[in-house]
Design a protein around this nucleic acid. Structure first.
Length: 486
RNA sequence: GGCGCAUUCGUCUAGCGGCCCAGGACACCGCCCUCUCAAGGCGGAGAUCGCGGGUUCGAAUCCCGCAUGCGCUACCA
């Protein structure tokens, strides 16, 4: 079979995790089967359009490496790929249904519909259109249209019987037609609703698999009805389980942490995000967590999609990002860190020299979870002056004998000044010898020097750090710390 | 209210009739390694497989009912 999938966002907001997960599975299915992955813009709601939303979708897909074969920017055999430029197609379809009496014009006003809904809800009845206009005579209809009365086109749902569709993940889903109301397919502004537009386009663009969120299951029977009425075969429906926020509700804007581009800002790797998203509803086996793109491509099947909704766990995403950071080679990591460092360095700091950053990478690779961890871990390399107080320096160990701390600092400074080769092995050898000489525990002595040089009790490995920092700065900082203790 | 979907450790998930008195991962705890912090290694705690009925020699796995959660119920998608 010729597999063709489509990612069809509506440009009404910023792309979030759930969107990208649909796109990922679309992409995987297409690529795995030598098919095509299509990008289509569903801008049929003119009121909710958000400027720049299409660009953001494209940016997110590109960042994640999900490339498409046909789309608004690259064209293709079914151009254009923007629904607002395809209105005649939907209007033709609506017209055909109208002439076949499978649809009808509805002149009911918004006010009437609101009142109707209010009445139904108050009476604890299922809200839905009462089909008032369905029974208008052809003469009535023509007359009101001719008079210029605004109207929508509604689909005439069969009054009896049932409609089912096959969901790839869940199997057959069947509903009674009596529970479906006559839904709008063409709005009064001439634009189609999602239902009509997606059915018409999916058929026209020869889409084989419709992958979308589970929230569409209730609409799928309507789409099935449309397929039948238009005499076209339905595609495979794949309704992905919902992604829930920590409050167990559908993940959305109110959870804040859902914008894909925000994860890029926050120092997440596209590899990690792809990996994480893939595991939201899909699994390779009973133990593999870290999966790269090519493995996914080799192993992805719809059979391993899960039907149950899952809660999004930011902790696990962080962990996974750390896993991916550790898998990067050092040159690569250095390049990825650089822009974040540049972004976060204060004005007064030295520039983020790529050569320096490259040397620092081995010291921090296992200490990062997100790329934005780089700066706090390495700030002392870039800032001109370290701010330490006597309390910081003395800590618990030297609280009661500051003289010992001064002595240790002096000894270290003197010895380091005379060290022949400024390498971390030489530095370490020297410092360890000094430890014995001073009668201190390694952790206390090194901790003191660490605080003096890096300004923190926690830092990357000391001796490697000193090597990279350089003798001059090291001695400067030791001297300065000494002064603080005076 | 109606309709639909789902239901295995706190969370994600493996399991598609016997290998499971349930395996892996995150988080958590302990130990080892160790100049701090990580990473890594080892170990621990954590699930009467939502409940009740069936079917079967045998059920987390199949069927039915109930409960709970969630989704949909717009001229939004």
């Amino acid at each position: 079979m010729n597999v063709r999938t489509r990612y069809a966002p509506s440009p009404t907001g910023t792309p979030h995790l759930a969107n990208m997960r649909v796109a990922l599975f679309d992409w995987l299915l297409a690529r795995r089967n030598g098919g095509a992955f299509i990008l289509r813009i569903e801008d049929t709601d003119q009121n909710r359009l958000v400027e720049g939303a299409v660009d953001e979708q494209i940016e997110a897909l590109t960042w994640l490496g999900l490339d498409w074969d046909e789309g608004p920017d690259k064209g293709g055999p079914f151009t254009p790929y923007v629904q607002s430029q395809r209105l005649n197609l939907y209007q033709d379809a609506a017209q055909r249904l109208l002439t076949e009496d499978k649809a009808y014009p509805c002149f009911c006003t918004a006010e009437r519909l609101d009142q109707l809904r209010a009445r139904q809800t108050a009476a604890k009845q299922a809200p839905g259109y009462d089909r008032l206009c369905r029974w208008l005579t052809p003469a009535d209809r023509q007359q009101r249209i001719a008079a210029g009365e605004p109207y929508v086109v509604r689909f005439a749902v069969p009054l009896e019987g049932e409609t089912g569709f096959a969901d790839v993940i869940r199997g057959e889903v069947v509903v009674q037609n009596s529970t479906l109301d006559d839904f709008v397919i063409l709005k009064s502004d001439g634009y189609p609703t999602y239902h009509l537009a997606s059915v018409v386009d999916d058929h026209h663009m020869q889409i084989s698999h419709v992958i979308r969120g589970e929230e569409w299951i209730p609409s799928a029977p309507r789409h099935q009805l449309l397929h039948q009425a238009l005499g076209i075969g339905p595609p495979f429906f794949v309704h992905l389980p919902l992604i829930l926020g920590p409050d167990r509700r559908k993940l959305g804007k109110r959870h804040g942490a859902a914008g894909v581009l925000e994860y890029r800002q926050g120092g997440y790797l596209p590899e990690a995000l792809i990996n994480f998203i893939a595991l939201l509803g899909w699994s390779l086996d009973d133990r593999t967590e870290v999966i790269d793109r090519s493995t996914m491509l080799e192993t992805f099947t719809l059979e391993r999609l899960s039907p149950n909704p899952g809660i999004f766990d930011p902790d696990k995403l962080r962990w996974m990002n750390g896993e991916w950071i550790r898998r990067l080679d050092e040159d690569d990591l250095a390049q990825r860190i650089l822009p974040y460092l540049v972004r976060e360095l204060p004005e007064t700091a030295d520039e983020a020299d790529p050569v320096l950053v490259r040397r620092i990478v081995p010291l921090i690779q296992t200490r990062m979870e997100v790329l934005t961890d780089a700066y706090p871990l390495t700030a002392f390399f870039f800032t001109q002056e370290i701010l330490v107080t006597a309390d910081d320096l003395l800590g618990k160990r030297f609280r009661d004998e500051p003289a010992a701390a001064v002595m240790a600092l002096d000894t270290a400074a003197k010895a380091l000044a005379g060290l022949a080769a400024w390498t971390h092995t030489e530095i370490e050898g020297l410092m360890r010898a000094l430890t014995e000489e001073l009668g201190l525990k390694p952790r206390d002595f090194f901790g003191l020097v660490r605080m003096a040089v890096t300004g923190a009790a926690v830092s990357p490995p000391l001796f490697e750090s000193l090597e990279i920092l350089g003798r001059e700065k090291t001695l400067e900082r030791l001297a300065r710390a000494r002064m603080v203790l005076e």
